[in-house]
Amino acid sequence: MVHLKKYGMFLAFIWPQWLMANDIDVTMHYIGPTEGQVWLGVQQGIKEANLQGGFLGQKYKVEVVEPEALDKTNVETVLLLATDDDYIMKVAQSEQFAETPVINLISRNDKLRQACIPNLFHITPSDEMRADALAQWNEKNPDKPAEVMSWHKDFVKFAASQLNNRFEKNQGEAMTDQAWAGWAGTKMIADSVVQTMQYDAKFMLNHLKTNLVFDGQKGDNANFRENGQLRQILLLVDNNNKIVAEAPLRGFEGGLDSLGKVTCK
């Protein structure tokens, strides 16, 4: 009896800790190409998620889903998409994913944002954000043409150089816009799991909408606008592929929200 009691006490003491340390095993589902930059970005995100989660006994993996198998797939946490716009729209609006975060990694189409689908999020900056960034640049530098990018291999500030270094070291090529989007979409989910210790899709959907604090290694906290677009700075790059400015440019009101639409109105 005494032994049993002791044993029970021991179990009661160790059980919750054991649960917390081992019970998190996260699968992120993905539809899109399994080669090229966006895929490398996803791979890098998963690698970092496992490095981080490894200290806490958590494991992360990405499962590639064929579109025809999607309706039979149990998406536990998140669905990441690098597909065409019609497909994104269809999947996000389906009943199956009404309470699941669906993340558009690389489409810039403004219509997807304007649709304001409550479970649909957009990582890469919209066409409109890019146009606004360029307009700010042109207003101050009418004689110097520039191109807008969301990421650049020579970007150094906000620890961007560290991300560039480790991406190139691990993936064998320089990080571009699409790779950053793949990385950010994946890393943000892993960071959210680490912060909350929860990974249920419904919880994650609410968390992304209301409580997300994400370090996209582009400076300020990257969180989502009402229309599902991720807030972030943009880069202006000149003819020689040299970064010449960050948007929003100095002197423009509204901070990050001076680029593109914010609300669903």
Partner: peptide, 21 residues
Amino acid sequence: ESSNMVHIIETTDYTAVAHLV
């Protein structure tokens, strides 16, 4: 910075005893 943690290391045997988010 990018793993959002404070790692606690014992200096006697250099083992990490906790990783706090």
